[in-house]
């Protein structure tokens, strides 16, 4: 066989399947979402919504105090934020960054879609009973804590991104128990409080912009531990 015959298909070889119909950008978005395990994330977000429904329906509550009243709702909100933060980690690293010029838009779109899905899932979950603070407080909390998770992913990498929402939950619970009212602890503020909402959405937008522009930190620890 000579080099001139290489371009021919080998006898009996099956030709490559034709590309699936549909716009290329849709396929790209789908592949990106699959690489970030977005379908699993959506299932987990639905699980958070279901957990909220159960907690409200069966009146799960630790006795007394504002911290105890929001313990389980805030936990589901922080859990949803942690799931979104965990999706930011990319498995391809440098090759993807070097070749994927649409990557910032994909990161932005995926994060916004997942945050909206989290709010939607928790809104459905809140039909199980009386959600403290209502929809406005829940949406604010989810957005703000998601921002914390995104910032954590940017600073510490994908492996530890979930620690941001978890740490914020612990801090918020302690602050609520201590009756601290700083707007940076937005779960402690009334649902329509301007200061709390500004802080929460500021953190979310900052995290969103940075994750869009920079992406998550590629930590050596992500692959070495």
């Amino acid at each position: 066989m000579t080099a001139s015959r290489v371009h021919r298909a080998a006898p009996g070889a099956v030709s490559a399947p034709a590309a699936r119909p549909g716009p290329a950008w849709l396929r790209l978005a789908w592949l990106y979402l699959v690489s970030r395990r977005a379908p699993t994330a959506l299932a987990l977000l639905a699980g958070c919504g279901a957990l909220l429904w159960v907690a409200l329906h069966w009146h799960w509550s630790v006795s007394g105090g504002p911290a105890a009243q929001v313990l389980f709702p805030l936990l589901t909100e922080a859990g949803a934020a942690a799931v979104i933060a965990a999706t930011t980690y990319g498995p391809f690293g440098e090759p993807e960054r070097a070749t994927g010029r649409w990557l910032p838009y994909l990161r932005l779109g995926a994060t916004v879609v997942l945050t909206a899905a989290a709010i939607g899932a928790l809104a459905l979950g809140s039909t199980g009973g009386q959600l403290p603070g209502g929809f406005a407080a829940m949406a604010r909390n989810v957005a703000g804590i998601t921002g914390v998770g995104l910032l954590c992913a940017i600073v510490f990498g994908g492996m530890l991104a979930w620690t941001g929402p978890m740490a914020y939950w612990v801090l918020a619970e302690a602050a609520l128990a201590d009756r601290l009212t700083t707007p940076w602890v937005w779960p402690a503020r009334p649902p329509l409080d301007r200061g709390g909402a500004m802080c929460a959405y500021l953190v979310f937008v900052t995290g969103l912009v940075l994750i869009t522009v920079r992406g998550v930190r590629e930590s050596v620890r992500d692959t070495s531990t």
Binding site: R37, T40, A41, L44, L51, W60, S61, V62, S63, L71, F72, L75, A78, G79, A82, V83, A85, A86, T87, Y89, G158, M159, W162, T163, P165, M166, W169
Partner: peptide
């Protein structure tokens, strides 16, 4: 194994502790 196992385990542990407190 998977990327979500760490957050799921962490929040599951908090949930268990919360129910334990309740």
């Amino acid at each position: 194994p998977g990327r979500f196992i760490a957050p799921v385990t962490a929040f599951g542990t908090v949930l268990a502790m919360g129910l334990s407190s309740q």
